[in-house]
Design a protein around this nucleic acid. Structure first.
Length: 456
RNA sequence: GCCCCCAUCGUUCAGCGGCCUAGGACACCUGCCUUUCACGCAGGCAACACGGGUUCAAAUCCCGUUGGGGGUACCA
């Protein structure tokens, strides 16, 4: 049987890293097995779905290199779900209900349960006629258990008695996602359902519906551990900075993100984490996925990204980062500086901060840096000498280096960092002399003199 | 409240009864390289939540406790 998996986002927001990881694992499994990867947009709730969000999800998936083989929009399949629901009604597996949410809540409280105590089956045998405010509910079994063998979690079972008679068609006539989900997985011949652990509780409902629709088999489920924030809570679009497109905008490489995401909940057997996607596809197995939630660690993502940036061909690095500095720096100079830049940046967005001082004003040194670097005995004297000699020198990198280091040797002190701080505003960065020679002599002298003044 | 799940270094992945005085990676610290930083290289710090079993033998199996998380909608 050939594998068919689907990624089923609800277009209620941008693609976030948790969903992206679900998509990735589905994709990896499909590619590993030579199966089919399906994008199925679960937009059965018109209020919460926006067409432009579907586009943004497609864009993020494409950015990550997750290509899909088939695509469906559930909003275009309403009639199918409705028909399935009506069949259930005709077979006595579902019934009409005219209780309002308030009715349900009131009765639950009267029973001494909390407001979310659930529906009590009030209309199960009332033969409610179709009409305004009438919804359809599924009649769940009162006994027995519904369960499945989860590829990641092992056997999971729910007592049917704890399952309430949930709504399958809203009073507005729109089918609920459970119906769409059960119907589509069945209809589309989905063999493996790979999704977040937050969906385990809905699984028995879907399984029961599926069975009621006539299915005699279950898909294989694999419930992924959640990706959590530093507070160990499920990533939230509101609270956490997790939109995939934001990372793309910040200059993370798609390959790095994809590679990092693959190590959350799963890892290659040999422990080599940074590696080509082809090798990950080859090694990936659903059964090897771990059970415990994983923290989305931006620091580690940065490391992955740095590795991928350094592995980039020099030309690619230049062409991909040039737009960030175009109009400020000379192209030829940028190309000369690029290899050193490539070694240092962990995100493309950091590029401008490394060259700002060359093409514009230098930032004011922090008090801490100033004290650490400039408050040394020989600094004023060194600065005086350097300023003097720089006034006459041929303005080229090798000459500047000779002068700065020469003064250092004469005075038996280190001169690079004080000069660097005076000129660039920070005490670390690109090798100094090449870019320094690209700055106007007078500008360099002004900055050195300003620093010298501040030392009086 | 009820239902479901999880539990190895700060983080992440490994370990699936003896090979574990628990391994790799990120982060952190030290040294080397370098008159900056980074890269690279060499080291270091650091974990089996707790309590009972089972077994000749448990990080690995079972039960409980504790802790954490998820769900509980006419959202998906």
């Amino acid at each position: 049987m050939t594998v068919r998996v689907r990624f089923s986002p609800a277009p209620s927001g941008y693609l976030h890293v948790g969903s992206a990881r679900s998509a990735l694992f589905n994709w990896l499994y499909a590619r590993h097995t030579g199966g089919t990867f399906i994008l199925r947009v679960e937009d059965t709730n018109a209020d919460r779905s926006k067409p432009e969000l579907v586009d943004s999800i497609r864009e993020s998936l494409t950015w990550l290199g997750l290509d899909w083989d088939e695509e469906y929009l559930q909003s275009e399949r309403f009639d199918l779900y409705l028909e399935a629901a009506n069949d259930l009604l005709a077979n006595g597996k579902a019934y009409l209900c005219d209780c309002t949410p308030d009715d349900v809540k009131t009765r639950a409280e009267a029973r001494g349960e909390s407001a979310s105590g659930g529906y009590d089956g009030h209309c199960r045998n009332r033969n409610v006629e179709p009409g305004d405010g009438v919804a359809m509910r599924f009649a769940t079994p009162n006994e027995g258990v519904t369960g499945w063998d989860d590829l990641i979690r092992g056997r999971v079972e729910f007592e049917n008695a704890v399952l309430e008679d949930f709504i399958i068609v809203r009073s507005s006539g729109v089918p609920m996602f459970h119906v769409a989900n059960a119907y589509d997985d069945y209809d589309m011949g989905i063999t493996h359902v790979v999704r977040g652990e937050d969906l385990v509780n809905t699984t028995p409902r879907v399984l029961l519906l599926r069975e009621a629709m006539g299915a005699t088999t279950q898909p294989t489920y694999a419930h992924l551990p959640l990706i959590v924030n530093e507070q160990r809570k499920k990533l939230s679009k509101r609270r956490d900075d997790v939109s995939v497109s934001d990372y793309a905008d910040k200059g993370y490489l798609a390959e790095a993100m994809r590679n990092y995401l693959a190590t959350l909940g799963w890892g290659p057997e040999d422990g080599v984490e940074v590696r080509p996607i082809e090798e990950i596809i080859e090694q990936f197995e659903l059964a090897d996925i771990g059970k415990a939630p994983a923290f989305f660690d931006v620091k580690k993502l940065d490391h992955f990204n740095g590795e991928y940036i350094r592995a980039l061909p020099e030309d690619d690095f230049v062409s991909q980062t040039w737009p960030l500095v175009d109009g400020t720096i000379d192209r030829e100079l940028y190309e000369r500086l690029a290899p050193e830049l490539q070694l240092r940046v962990k995100q493309f967005s950091q590029v401008p901060s490394f060259i700002d001082w060359i093409v514009g004003d230098a930032p004011e040194p922090s008090g801490k840096d100033w004290r650490k670097v400039m408050k040394k005995d020989k600094v004023p004297e060194a600065l005086d000498l350097i300023i003097e000699r720089l006034g006459e020198a041929p303005w080229e990198a090798a000459e500047l280096e000779r002068i700065v280091f020469g003064v250092g040797e004469e005075l038996e002190t280190r001169t690079q960092v004080p000069v660097r701080l005076a000129i660039t505003g920070v005490r670390s960065g690109l090798p100094l002399f090449e870019p320094m020679a690209a700055v106007d002599r007078q500008v360099v002298l002004d900055r050195l003199k300003a620093a010298r003044e501040r030392l009086r």
